[in-house]
Amino acid sequence: MNSSKRLPRGLPRAPERGVAFLLVLWVVAMLSVLLGSFALVARTELTQSRHLFDTTQARYAAEAGLDLAVYELRKSDPMMRWVGDGRPYSFGFGDADVEVRITDDSGKIDLNAPNEQMLTNLFAARGLDPDRAQGLAAAIKDWIDPDDDTTLNGAELAQYKAAGLSYGPRNAPFDTVLELQQVLGMNYELFSKVEPALTIYSGQGVPNLANAPIEVLDAQEGGSADCSAQIVEWRRSFQPGDPAAPPQPECATQAGMSIPMAAGGGLTYSVKSRAKLPNGASTTLDATIRMGGINAAGRPYVILRWRDGENS
């Protein structure tokens, strides 16, 4: 009599059951990986979509700041008009908090009508040693003059070649302020410090101190960083059109500076509009505009320079 046990018909042997169990585990593991990958992709796409939505919302809020600045600058009442001396103006736009700063370009140093001494002072006030500051100011003059004669301490084609550069001065006016980075002796670190003080649109050899940014005030003979800060606070203490302005800071008088009261301003303005959302997303729009007329887009101003998307 055979005493070996027989499995019921239809029931797999033990090794077969083990293989089936492992196969089920493998399938479950693969499904888990696929599900996890899908969840990760979905989360990534959601984050990207949210970031795109936030930056777009902040961008249009910043553009609203620019449009509001134009509206406020066009007001006929000087007591109501916004002032182009860099003071901040804040307002809410939807969920965004917007801060706008306007600088009349008449208060900046014009690279195409250069005042060498003021440029030298500007570079020295931003950390360049006096000799290099003087040489850089002279190189700017050589960049825009039409001849190939080297100014004292300046730079023409021979100096650029000696520095290993494949180009020389344009011998023509600057097309943009950014072009200053190509001038021999300039570097990005210094450029980023002096850019707010520079323009190519005023046509004036001497900036209007009523609207001058703090970098230009620092470049005045006999001035100092502390005195410049006092002048900025003094300017913000009154509104153009006030019957009488408080006396200007004593340090300005001692330095021989006479700071006029801001009046109607010019036609060219640099506008920096920063919009920030509650979740921290932000966009900064930095533009230079010229007021007057109606352009093809129906706007009462012309855009001369435009830079945006700088999250900070």
Rank of each mutant, 00 (worst) to 15 (best):
T288K: 04
A255C: 08
V206E: 12
N171E: 07
D147Q: 11
S192L: 10
D129P: 10
T176H: 07
A163V: 08
V232Y: 03
D145G: 03
Q117W: 12
Q204S: 15
M257R: 06
D149C: 15
P278F: 05
V302Y: 11
F38Q: 13
G293P: 02
G154N: 00
V70G: 05
G256S: 09
D142T: 04
N112Y: 04
G168Y: 02
Y71W: 13
S202H: 01
E221P: 12
T150M: 12
S49P: 03
N153S: 12
A42E: 09
L22D: 08
K75I: 09
E72Q: 11
M1S: 15
S3Q: 15
R81W: 05
Q181V: 09
Y201D: 03
P12T: 05
Y269F: 09
G127K: 04
G222F: 07
T288L: 07
L190M: 08
D54Q: 07
G222H: 05
Y269T: 01
P130I: 05
I214L: 07
E63C: 13
L277H: 04
S202R: 02
Y301V: 01
T151Y: 08
V194C: 00
S228I: 03
Q134I: 12
G203M: 08
K141H: 14
E63Y: 11
F191W: 03
K75H: 10
A245S: 11
A197R: 00
M79I: 12
I144H: 06
F123G: 00
E215Q: 03
R126H: 13
N311Y: 15
A139D: 02
N211Q: 14
A62S: 05
Q48Y: 14
D105A: 13
F53S: 15
P196M: 05
L23N: 11
L7G: 09
E63V: 14
E116H: 11
G36F: 07
K141W: 12
P260H: 06
D104W: 01
F174Y: 03
N171G: 06
S282I: 08
A69L: 01
D105I: 10
Q159L: 10
L122W: 00
G185N: 02
R87A: 05
Y269N: 01
Q220G: 05
F93Q: 10
A297N: 13
A138T: 06
R101T: 02
Q182G: 11
V206C: 11
G135D: 08
D145R: 02
D286I: 09
P246V: 08
D67V: 15
A138D: 02
N187F: 08
D97M: 14
G127D: 04
T284H: 07
P246T: 07
A69Y: 03
S3P: 15
Q117T: 15
G135F: 05
A139P: 01
T150V: 10
A139K: 00
F93L: 12
D242A: 11
D147N: 13
K161H: 15
D149S: 13
G203V: 06
